[in-house]
Design a protein around this nucleic acid. Structure first.
Lengths: 109, 109
DNA sequence: CGAATACTGTGCCATAAGGCTAAGTATTGC
DNA sequence: GCAATACTTAGCCTTATGGCACAGTATTCG
């Protein structure tokens, strides 16, 4: 099970929930308070807060509290890690097709 | 909760497990039988088969049975959907920074 | 044909995930 | 200061997830 990454795992788990993915989408437009975000979803605040905590625990967002308001902001550099994993898969696949092509070319000779 | 996609949801859920992510990685190098794949993991075959079924149900792999051997192959075009979602987030963020920059530029005048 | 191989199906189990209500706590506005 | 606001905490519930053992089916090999 080479190449196991707990970090990547958390990121994918965090993104595996539609509510959390939508939060990420909204935060892409800029920071927002928990309350403002929550209003967009059909679940209770405590339930919503769990998602916020999950996102923060897995590093996808950063939150700060000022007075009674907690503000959330996206951490783009962490989304880049997911991107990196996908890029790796592409690279593996491309290496493979390159090898296959060489093989076919050689056989054609 | 605009923009909800059950398809994307399945893809992220499928990729949220390290075993399944590793299977995807291995299949990037080319198709492989369930048995050959399973040997790389410290779980029983029935447990491993669940992962295979999850991957197939969410469209990340295709499997075919010939004789008593089931062969798995990666569906790259489906990984591209995940890529697409990430690209969208990047686009949203870039639009936003463009707007912010315009704002800053205007204020500087 | 009989044994070995490669899954497949069933049922059980423990934990985690995601939701809720109800009751706090800390700030802010009147 | 008192009420409203904006979370927070706690506890509970249901379903989903990931793992297991054990037994079965279908192919293939000697």
């Amino acid at each position: 099970m080479a190449q196991y990454s707990e970090e990547l795992d958390g990121l994918f788990v965090a993104l595996a929930d539609p509510t959390r993915r939508e939060v990420v989408r909204r935060l892409g437009r800029g920071p927002q308070s928990v309350g403002d975000l929550a209003r967009a979803f059909p679940i209770t605040l405590p339930s919503f807060m769990k998602h916020v905590r999950t996102l923060e625990a897995n590093g996808l967002i950063r939150t700060t509290k000022s007075g009674r308001v907690r503000t959330c902001a996206l951490r783009r550099e962490r989304l880049a890690l997911v991107d990196g994993w996908l890029a790796e898969q592409r690279r593996i696949w491309e290496d493979r097709t390159d090898r296959l092509e060489r093989l076919v070319t050689e056989e054609e000779q």
